[in-house]
Write a protein that binds this DNA or RNA. Structure first.
Length: 601
RNA sequence: GGUCCGGUAGCUCAGUUGGAUAGAGCAUCAGCCUUCUAAGCUGAGGGUCAUUGGUUCGAAUCCAAUCCGGAUCACCA
């Protein structure tokens, strides 16, 4: 239990003892960290009890403060009351024993296995174009969320649902057949996903030109959009694909294969992976049996033309189509089936998390609601981890129009920028070329991931490609640098990083600890609570904020105190424990975000 | 039009189970490297927390209304 929670507990019991007849609840107690301008470490807010206990705040504070110091002298040294706030000063020995106990605990903050299975579906790309910057936000979020949940005791399955069929895939295929002259990734040296994406863009160029021509010939635009020859070809191809046409199917397999090779390369570079792949070509017919079931249960209804619907107007939503009048399914139908499939594949899931952009909020809300109405056991576990789109200053990225920031290009750029800045700072000495390449990768990718993870997922973000991502301030680089500094100190002291770090002899505190020392200890003590919050709020950005603040505190501490030349042995050991644990905690948190911290930079 | 999300410093963002004088980073300005890594540290300036009203001892945080921006409401996926 964190110190803040302990204080809340203790203060509640104290008030119960002092005022046995009053009707109080634990939720009335607020415990905050004391503001730096006042003396004290933690603050109990007294106002909520003033009316109930008919006491003036300051008198109440005095009684409570006296009681706490008298009965919990092991925890508190003293208290001060400032206009309704009871500021408690925690014994230095508390921090010392916390450190002694936890500094070499490599699992600090983690929770024991809880036996609950959670699926995190993320990435889920279309196979007609390469990954772009917006996908990166999805990928980093999903990967981080999975690891955060693991650290909180869940059994996590990382899933990727690949959208490998449909009209958009046929568009690339048609354009390739028409214009590629048999070009392959091998013959052109172009990465497979990019090659296919180029023909997707090509399709749209031709399509637009054909529409224009038809409109000039006197056709209405809406009609032209349907009648354009290349579009009809694509639709024809989709029908052939669904009918299992050998030639079409074989081209489809070939081109998807190119894309997968490209994606795998990108995933590897991004440092992410999946435990389970789903393909829409296998799942797109699912869900029909659920519809049948829903009809027989009377949850769904059939219109005169044969189409099947659900009426959600009572829930403040609309009517939603689930089967077309020709009996074919729609997107929602297959999603219903896939939700059920995921659940059954894993013998039940405690939770199924979908990392999907916020433009699908409505869709996901409807999906969950329909499954609930159908009484499906998978329904309640569905959680939509919704995130805001990444936009350019000019608006949304549109791959159809080629106005996207490509993910592979972005990685290249970040790595080359970190190379450039490292060289400019003259920090390349003492590294082999191989070590330098790894360092540039670590810094570049770290900066990229942190940039996309540091913002609250639900907020949309604007990225200006003209402005490069910074390596100063609120960045991964800042945290990596603090870590490298710690490693440097440890190297000089002949100590190595955890888990190999030497254990110290027993430690007894005989001197006071300084403000900078205490601040670090206080922050470290909060890590388990932060890690838990990141999971319950589905928000990895909390870890970014935490790590940055921790690194800031370390940097101030480092500036103020010498570790190797500490005033005496006791101070030296205390500070070594502090920095070992700081490095360990930063590594732990950043690892969950998929960000590595170099030992030298 | 209905529903949902957002609006905090010049810019990018923290802060919302209601707590003290609203915080960081970037940018600007001024300091700090013969001493453990200056990718750092210290300090300064910069705010009508979109607006108005309400609830309360206390509101960026809760409620209501309004304004602005975005998403969504397809026999598309």
């Amino acid at each position: 239990m964190t110190i803040a929670a302990q204080i809340k507990d203790i203060a509640f019991k104290a008030l119960k003892n002092l005022f046995p007849e009053a009707d109080m609840q634990a939720s009335m107690i607020t415990v905050n960290q004391t503001k730096p301008e006042f003396t004290g470490d933690y603050t109990v807010v007294l106002f909520p009890f003033v009316k109930l206990l008919r006491q003036k705040p300051d008198e109440l504070g005095k009684q409570l403060g006296d009681y706490l110091v008298a009965n919990h002298g092991d925890l508190f040294t003293s208290y001060a009351i400032v206009s309704g706030f009871l500021n408690l000063t925690v014994q230095d020995s508390y921090w010392a024993s916390f450190l002694t106990k936890e500094y070499n605990n490599t699992a600090f903050g983690e929770k024991p296995k809880n036996g609950k299975k959670v699926m995190v579906e993320y990435s889920s790309p279309n196979t007609n174009k390469p990954l772009h910057f917006g996908h990166l936000r999805n990928i980093f979020l999903g990967y981080a969320m999975a690891d955060v949940l693991k650290a909180n005791g869940y059994d996590v399955i990382k899933a990727n649902l690949i959208n490998d069929r449909g009209i958009h895939i046929c568009k690339s295929m048609i354009a390739w057949m028409r214009y590629a002259n048999g070009a392959t990734p091998q013959s052109t040296g172009i990465k497979g996903d990019h090659l296919v994406g180029d023909y997707y863009v090509k399709f749209n160029d031709i399509y637009k030109a054909e529409i224009k021509q038809l409109v000039e010939g006197g056709m209405a635009e809406a009609t032209a959009e349907k009648e354009a020859p290349i579009m009809k070809e694509a639709q024809d191809m989709l029908r052939k694909w669904e009918a299992g046409d050998k030639e079409v199917y074989s081209l489809w397999e070939t081109m998807n294969g190119w894309v997968y090779e490209g994606f795998n390369e990108s995933y590897k570079r991004l440092g992410v992976d999946f435990d389970k792949m789903y393909y829409e070509s296998n799942t797109y017919l699912l869900g029909k049996s659920l519809v049948e079931e829903g009809l027989s249960k009377g949850v769904l209804f059939k219109k005169e033309d044969g189409s099947v619907w659900i009426d959600l107007t009572a829930d403040g939503l609309d009517q939603k189509l689930l089967l077309r009048s020709d009996g074919t399914s729609v997107y929602m139908t297959q999603d219903l089936g896939t939700a059920q499939l995921k659940y059954n594949d894993h013998n039940g899931l405690h939770q199924s998390i979908y990392v999907i952009a916020d433009e699908q909020n409505y869709h996901m809300q409807v999906l969950k609601l329909i499954l609930q109405k159908l009484g499906e056991p998978c329904a309640d576990g569905i959680y939509h981890l919704s995130y805001g789109m990444v936009e350019l200053p000019s608006g949304r990225m549109k791959s159809r129009e080629g106005t996207v920031v490509d993910a592979d290009d972005m990685m290249d750029e970040m790595i080359s920028m970190s190379r450039q800045q490292t060289e400019e700072a003259g920090k390349t000495e003492g590294f082999t070329q191989e070590e330098l390449d790894r360092l540039y990768y670590t810094i570049g990718m770290g900066a990229l991931k942190f940039y996309l993870l540091r913002v609250d997922p639900k907020k949309k973000m604007i990225f200006d490609p003209k402005e490069s991502i910074d390596l100063h301030g609120f960045t991964a680089t800042f945290i990596q640098y603090a870590h490298a500094r710690i490693c440097s100190i440890l190297r000089k002291e002949g100590l190595s990083l955890l888990p190999d770090s030497n254990t110290f002899a027993s430690f007894t505190l005989t001197q006071g600890i300084t403000t900078a020392e205490k601040k670090l200890a206080v922050s470290l003590e909060q890590y388990p609570a932060i890690l838990e919050n990141a999971a319950t709020e589905y928000n990895p950005s909390l870890l970014c904020n935490y790590c940055f603040a921790l690194a800031q505190q370390f940097n101030s501490f480092y500036d103020e105190h010498s570790i190797s030349k500490a005033e005496n042995e006791e101070k030296k050991q205390l500070r070594l424990m502090l920095i070992v644990m700081t490095a360990q905690t930063m590594r732990h948190a950043m690892k969950l975000l998929g960000i590595a911290l170099p030992e030298k930079m």
